[in-house]
Amino acid sequence: MSLIQLLIDGIASGCIYGLVALGFVLIYKATETINFAQGDILMLGAFVAFSLIGVFELPYILGFLLTVLIIGSFGFALDTVVIRQVIGQPPFATVMLTIGLGFVFRGFASIFWGTDIYSFATPFSGKITEFNGLIISYVNLSIIIGTMVLMTGLYLFFTLSKIGVAMRASSENQLAAYYMGIPVKLIFSLIWAISAGVAAVAGVLLAPITLVDTSISLIGLKAFAAAVLGGFGSIPGAIVGGIIIGVVEQLCGTYENYLFEGIREISAYLVLLLVLIIYPRGLFSDKAEVKKV
């Protein structure tokens, strides 16, 4: 297999990591909490899409949009009802809270949808295109294009729209934003909604590759590597970090024999630890330095 082929596969899976990491980054930038349940929200997105497209047989695009809408409002409700109560408490409380929520979502999904592994037909399943001898599957193509479209949309939203600017203001300085008349609580809930919506997009795009079951929530943990590598707090950093992690994983998988067996599964975590130890500010951080003792 040629190197470019590997790169394309790596970039596609990296885009998924990047999207999940983007969810972390949005929430972290605004509220300084880390949502350990991001992967589980992705899983819920995939399941909801499966129900809408696979069971109720809605058209793909409609099902896709409806999924994002449902999961987005779910994220909004989650912040309003639960997360808001622990804001300002030590980080330990939010870490445990979101981990607990992750378990609740996973348990709920396996009760509601059962423990079977589902697959649903998308317009991209099983189709490939050839380009200069490279084989590109439509699924990978859909992931890469989907990510690009979403990123552009989010970029425009954050720079042009009034709500987007308000969101950036509240991330920058909560108190000042509040004095300027920005409804900070509402904005935070909206950020949770966007972040959940992005996770849902990742879930739906990923579903044709990994199939749908509760174990895909583990992607959320690997995406930490992407977020940290990109310098937690930077939106382009999350995507670039995700792509790097995806490519590294793909390369480790292919050259496993030269390294050591099983390195593929832990390569993301190894990168994560190395980055944290050697260069914790990450590639694209807007911070001068991560606080160290």
Binding site: I34, P91, L221, F224, G262, I266, Y269, L276, V290, V293
Partner: peptide, 28 residues
């Protein structure tokens, strides 16, 4: 020594990664 120089959330993430790697070492 290396990872406790990090604060707050970064530390939680680092210990998470350590847990996964350790589990993998037990297997291999």
């Amino acid at each position: 020594f290396p990872i406790l120089r990090l604060t707050g959330m970064y530390l939680a993430i680092a210990t998470l990664a350590f847990g996964f790697i350790a589990e993998h070492i037990f297997i291999r």
